[in-house]
Design a protein around this nucleic acid. Structure first.
Length: 876
RNA sequence: AGGACUAUAGCUCAGUUGGUUAGAGCGCUACCUUGACAUGGUAGAGGUCGGCAGUUCGAAUCUGCCUAGUCCUACCA
């Protein structure tokens, strides 16, 4: 159990807090004081996730709780960095990175989100140098851009090598307007002939594609932006390999210097227009890359950063999933993983932040750097003596440390007992949105750093269970900044509308959305949220955990499951009421089981079998559904009712009473254990009361064995017989319900056309029938006995008859029978069509055909019986 | 631009290798405070499984195309 330090998000949050409360920036405070503030905040609010997990009843190893910024974990992070560096997998270099001008840090590709935004495409005329002309006789070519301000850093204009319009210009030059710079026209097949004019301005220091082209063509890189994305006074010039060129004659006109990028853009556009160099401006939708934390458009910027060379790490990580050492559940997610891993880019791991793991590298005054576990080690290793050294100011990407989680938490780099015992771990449960961020990086880091004794790589875990993403009531991804989150604690404890509104709109990053969120919240939660409890919440999350990628949270489901908890509670109180201080057979004694007892024991086995299979295959929804249906629809709805005629029977023998009580408590106890992982609290609470009745003395249901299904206790005969009982009862109830006979009124029932087997079942179970169908009497009719005019239900061939006299309206019963007949006719028509088709009879498997024949025969028999009944009633 | 996923009752979702009368919860209708439970009980209504073709004796399930929606990846200056 543990948490990571969420570098960027946390630093941002604390910066805002300090700004709001004290009006200070982090630079005002200084690094150490600012970090104190972060730790302070961590102490106050860092326990939120932990608290939520505790309330949710997570059964984790609290003794081994870790935080990625713990001292011990820092050791692991440093060690990993040093080893990767020594293995040649970490390098430092001047590269183009995604720069966040607000947070002043590099961020990884994954932290950049691009969405369509309305923008413009500016077409600019670049005059040809040396009197060159285009084929049309113009003395300029036209390039288009969405970021005109970058033209200050242009190093070339590129055309496609096969483009006939410009072939004669390749190798010639243009005079870059506004700055006096002569830049070459180069040929590169990256250029799209079809797009725009076919001419592209190339700014290697400010665009990723241009950077790549600059590398291919040996272009100089001219950086014109500072850390705030404002225009520099003096451009920084680098050679293709990233070496700074101190002596250069590049310059930026005074009027643009220090202007913000957007102000500079306006200024440049207007200057070009004045100079007659603006061909046109078009509306253009572009994908604007924004930092996912700051929301600002990121700027590709040339900076010194640390990178992990990921290709060598990715290979074994791909193989581990390919050969099944690691499995994704559901399997389809491996495709997501593969597609990313097979096209992986080097990972920029340095962040210009204060909150995080400081990079273990030291610089001397000449700018040389040395990597080591600490300053002493570095000095010693490189024989540096007493020269000046300063540590790298930057910290590592949070995911770098999270990637070490499975072994870093167990004491690595020490080979602790825990590490030997628990690594590799078994299952990672996670969301698909961090397969790249976390899962892939964990696999890469672990396989490189953790080896078995034979030297082969250890995987971090064997199974990755990918959960759906819980979405809000409108289907949107929940996000604190959007204000549409549901705190699990509020679902557990309940919350008033006012408090919910305050919570959702209180800490928003985009306050302009507050109104919308308020409206939405009032609509969906007009009275806030009721308290549903942990068990209902957990059970609901399980029951929604199907294979889809989205889980739209539905209050209706949790409410239904709260009622389910209530149902279990009430059932348990019935069991305790009837079993506490009674002989439940816990100390032996003769036991006689009724049909109902045998039936519910048999059904329990099937339930156990299904739940176990569901858990094995990570189908928590199936497990939940199976438990719900067994406990409510079988145990409560039928078995508890069937136990009453036995328990309340003065004539019942001690063995019968003992048998029923024992079955009541044993099945309940087993069901509690079965349900415990899904609903921990209520099962524990009830189990404590039930355990003495089953002769158990354990301290907690948590420590009890999980139920195992016992095939020998499956009783097909009992299941069939009890189905017969149910059908009779349901037949009578249907007549009662549809004929409007008061449930309070006991009614006589006659049985006609039955077989010997039916009669035996009737004799054995009449007490059940009388109680559950509220019967006044049961009468078995032999062939030839006089049959009074009755409403009829069929159980197989046997007719269950409720005499109409004084109870039932003739027309109503006729209508009911006609409706039934209508259904049967449709059924018969369908089956006749099927069986009349020679192709079906010839080609379908025999058992399928036999099944259809049996269905038809049954439907025909039932229809005949009903038709006769209709005639009989009509004839009077 | 590639790739993936989703489409089943008013709502939220199941439906395993093609053979059910297509299911559950909530909601809805009628009746019922009977000794575990009205956060309940009993009985019911409600779906041409997004559309069109195809494969098959047989398709919610397999194939193709289309429509609608969601997401991911890569992006054109």
């Amino acid at each position: 159990m543990g948490t990571d330090h969420a570098g960027i998000a946390t630093q941002m949050l604390v910066e805002r807090k300090v700004q709001a409360e004290e009006g200070l920036t982090r630079h005002d405070l200084g690094r150490d004081k600012f970090l104190d503030k972060v730790w302070q905040w961590k102490e106050e609010s860092g326990g939120n996730i932990t608290r939520q997990l505790r309330r949710l009843g997570a059964s984790v190893d609290w003794n081994r709780e870790r935080f990625t910024m713990d001292e011990g974990f820092y050791t692991a992070v440093q060690e990993a960095f040093v080893r990767l560096y020594d293995d040649g997998l970490i390098y430092r270099g001047k590269r183009l990175v995604n720069w966040d001008p607000k947070l002043h840090t590099a961020i990884s590709d994954l932290e950049v989100v691009s969405e369509d935004e309305a923008g413009h495409l500016w077409h600019m005329r670049y005059p040809l140098a040396d009197g060159e002309k285009t084929l049309d006789g113009l003395d300029y070519i036209v390039v288009a851009t969405t970021r005109p301000e970058t033209m200050l850093g242009d190093a070339a204009v590129a055309v496609h090598p096969q483009d006939e319009r410009y072939q004669h210009l390749i190798g010639k030059f243009v005079d870059l307007p506004l700055v006096t710079r002569r830049i070459p026209i180069i040929a590169d097949d990256y250029v799209d002939l079809e797009f725009g004019t076919g001419c592209v301005k190339i700014t290697p220091a400010h665009d990723f594609n241009d950077y790549a082209m600059g590398q291919r063509h040996g272009l100089t890189m001219i950086n014109v932006l500072d850390q705030d994305a404002a225009i520099l006074a003096v451009p920084e010039v680098y050679s293709t390999d990233g070496k700074p060129q101190v002596q250069h004659d590049e310059h930026i006109p005074l009027i643009y210097q220090t202007l913000d990028r957007y102000a500079a853009r306006d200024c440049i556009v207007s200057d070009l227009q004045k100079a007659g160099l603006l061909e046109k401006v078009e509306d253009h939708t572009l994908k604007a890359p924004r930092g996912d934390r700051s929301g600002l458009v990121i700027e590709p910027l040339l900076t010194d950063q640390w990178f992990v060379s990921t290709k060598p790490l990715a290979e074994p990580a791909i193989a581990a999933v390919e050969d099944g050492r690691i499995e994704f559940v559901p399997k389809q997610w491996q495709n997501t993983y593969f597609s990313w891993m097979r096209d992986i880019q080097d990972w920029c791991i340095s962040r210009q932040l204060w909150w995080g793991h400081r990079i273990p590298a030291w610089y001397d005054d000449e700018g040389n750097f040395y990597v080591g576990r600490n300053e002493e080690e570095v000095r010693e290793k490189h024989n540096l003596g007493n020269i000046n050294l300063r540590q790298d100011e930057d910290v590592l990407d949070t995911w770098f440390s999270s990637g070490l989680w499975t072994f870093g938490t167990l004491g690595w780099p020490e080979m602790t007992d825990a590490l030997k015992k628990y690594h590799p771990t078994d299952v990672l449960v996670t969301g698909f949105d961090i397969i790249f961020f976390w899962v892939a990086r964990m696999i890469m880091m672990t396989m490189h750093l953790m080896k078995h004794e034979d030297g082969s790589p250890q995987v971090p875990f064997k199974t990755i269970y990918v959960t759906g993403l819980i979405r809000d009531e409108s289907g949107d991804k929940m996000s604190k900044s959007k204000g549409n989150v549901l705190d699990p604690l509020d679902l557990i404890d309940g919350i008033s509308l006012e408090d919910l509104l305050t919570k959702r709109t209180g800490n928003m990053m985009q306050p302009q959305l507050a109104k919308k969120i308020e409206k939405q919240t009032r609509k969906h939660f007009p009275e806030g949220m009721a308290a549903y409890g942990t068990d209902a919440l957990r059970f609901t999350l399980c029951s929604l955990a199907s294979t889809g990628r989205d889980i739209k949270f539905d209050l209706g489901r949790i409410e239904g499951n709260r009622n389910f908890c209530n149902k279990i509670w009430n059932a348990a109180s019935y069991v305790l009421l009837n079993c506490e201080n009674q002989d439940c057979g816990q100390t032996g004694g003769e036991v006689e089981l009724t049909l109902a007892d045998k039936w519910i024991i048999s059904r329990l086995q099937r339930t156990e079998q299904k739940v176990l299979a569901a858990l094995d295959s990570y189908r928590f929804d199936h497990a939940a559904e199976t438990l719900y249906s067994f406990i409510w629809n079988e145990y409560c709805a039928w078995y508890l009712e069937l136990s009453k005629p036995v328990l309340w029977d003065d004539q019942a023998s001690a063995a019968q009473l003992r048998g029923t009580r024992r079955t009541l408590v044993c099945v309940l106890e087993a069901a509690l254990r079965l349900a415990h992982p899904l609903m921990p609290y209520i099962t524990e609470e009830i189990w404590q009361k039930v355990k003495p009745l089953v002769g158990k003395g354990g301290d907690s249901i948590m420590l009890e064995a999980y139920p195992e299904f016992d095939a020998s206790k499956i009783d097909e005969q009992a299941e069939a017989d009890l189905n017969w009982v149910r059908e009779v009862i349901e037949g009578v109830r249907t007549i009662r319900g549809e004929m409007g006979i008061s449930p309070a009124r006991p009614i006589p029932v006659l049985f006609s056309q039955g077989q010997t087997a039916d009669q035996e079942k009737l004799n054995a179970n009449s007490q059940f029938l009388i109680k559950l169908a509220k019967l006044e009497s049961v009468t078995w009719l032999e062939a030839g006995d006089e049959v009074p005019l009755s409403a009829m239900a069929l159980v197989g061939e046997m007719e269950v008859l409720v005499p109409m006299a004084g109870l039932i309206d003739k027309d109503a019963e006729l209508a009911r029978l006609q409706k039934e007949l209508g259904k049967l006719d449709a059924e018969m028509k369908r089956l006749n069509g099927k069986l009349g088709n020679a192709k079906f009879v010839d080609n379908a498997p025999v058992d399928v055909v036999a099944k259809e024949r049996a269905k038809l025969a049954e439907a025909e028999a039932a229809a005949n019986a009903l038709r006769q009944q209709v005639e009989k009633i009509q004839s009077i």
